[in-house]
Simulated scan of single mutants.
Amino acid sequence: MPLPSLSSFFLGFVAGCLTILLLLAIAAVSLTRSGDIYGLGHWKLNIRTPFPSMWMNLGYWTRDDGTAIQHFDEAARNMLRQLLQAAGILSDSSSASSSPSVAVLDVGFGCGDQTVALAEIINASRRPQFRYVGLTLNATQLQEAQQRLDAALSHSTQDPPSSSSSSSTTSLNLPKASAFQLYQADAAQPTSWPPAVLSSVTSLADASFSERWLMGLDCLYHFSPSRKPIFTLAARTLHANVMAFDLILSDSASFWQTLAVRILGFVLLCPWRTFLTEREYREQLVECGYDREQVEIRDVSDHVFGGLASHLRKQDAVLRPYGISLTAYALVGRVYEWFDRTRVLKGVVVVGRVSHCGLS
């Protein structure tokens, strides 16, 4: 090797070593200054991804036997189950003949846990037909939800099929992937939907589905300008019943409490008059096409606000030693404590039915 080349190689080797040493020194100083090397900072190395769940709703914090739920994912799934139970579409039977065909338009489906859990809980794979269309505004959540759904379907197909399963279903109570369609679209404004989304949604009106449902799980109070467009489309175009968890304004709320709630909603990007009283909410459903005699609004506040506020306090205390701040969520927890104490807002399960749904 010529002398200049050898010299260049040596200089490059030394520079590389010095760069590595410098980076290690910076990392060491950073760790020792923060105390992470002998503290708890290495928690980041123990995280397993993807996360086992990414649920997001206020949760229903009481089990059927009356015991309190301690974990967020269980409470959130339990909220979905309460909604499906109120709608009457839980399936306790393994017989396909006793389970009607179901079509669901799910607005605000989150990161996919809700989609998979719904199909599992209602035993969708054993129904004669099942179709699910989900809409979300958030592109990141759509991507996460599609990945979770694909993973769940893939896991199902890897299991050996039971002798009673048909070739059109998987073995974990999940239908084939073609039964699910997820889109990014503003569910509050159907006139803004691209043709593909509109076509997919209106396909749910197929008379072969004896049960058709619009589901809004802890999201409808964000709908702008109001819930009316999606309620009207569901009732008059899809002939679909509605099941929702929503927040309603107390009839006894004072002027100042109402103002505080409206300002809070405005800060959280909700329409100014999104929180309606029970009477106003019922009238809106009737105006949009639901049968007045078949609208049920059940107050479940006892099982929602206190449990969530308590969980946020405990989670903040547990995570603080690891350098994880839940300050924003802790502040939200104070708001739910106020709701729990004053009931200026109430958490409700809503079920509305259209006349002769399924016979059109």
Rank of each mutant, 00 (worst) to 15 (best):
Q70A: 13
L247F: 07
W43T: 02
R334M: 11
D316L: 04
H311L: 15
Y38P: 02
W213S: 00
N78A: 03
S310V: 00
W256M: 11
S7C: 10
Y38D: 01
W256I: 01
S199A: 14
A244C: 15
M243S: 09
S162A: 13
G39S: 11
L149F: 02
S254Q: 01
L18R: 06
V261K: 07
L45I: 00
D150G: 04
Y60L: 05
T140P: 02
L58T: 12
T237L: 10
A235S: 14
F305Q: 01
P190F: 06
R298V: 13
I20C: 08
R273C: 11
I47S: 10
S210W: 07
A317M: 10
C357N: 13
P160F: 14
T115K: 01
G108I: 05
V286D: 10
Y183G: 03
G59V: 11
L18V: 13
T232W: 02
S91E: 15
T258M: 02
L84H: 10
H42F: 15
C111P: 02
R353N: 01
S93H: 04
G16T: 04
V354L: 07
K228E: 14
P194M: 06
E296V: 15
V116M: 00
V300T: 11
T232V: 00
L233C: 06
L24F: 09
S224C: 06
F223N: 07
G59E: 09
R48A: 14
L105F: 04
A25Y: 11
L135C: 01
I230K: 04
A205E: 09
M56R: 07
L308P: 05
Q147S: 14
L198P: 02
G307A: 13
L204F: 06
N241I: 03
T237P: 01
A96G: 14
E278W: 06
L326R: 15
T19W: 13
I89A: 06
S210E: 14
D302Q: 13
N138C: 15
I121W: 13
T157F: 12
L172V: 04
R227G: 08
G358Y: 06
Q315R: 15
F13E: 05
L238G: 03
T232N: 04
R33E: 09
S93D: 12
G12E: 11
D159F: 00
N57Q: 03
F10Y: 11
D65E: 08
A139N: 10
S250C: 05
D246S: 09
P271Q: 12
R279S: 13
P195T: 13
V104Y: 06
W256S: 12
T32L: 14
G12M: 01
L276H: 07
D340L: 07
G306C: 06
D251Q: 13
L308A: 02
F275V: 05
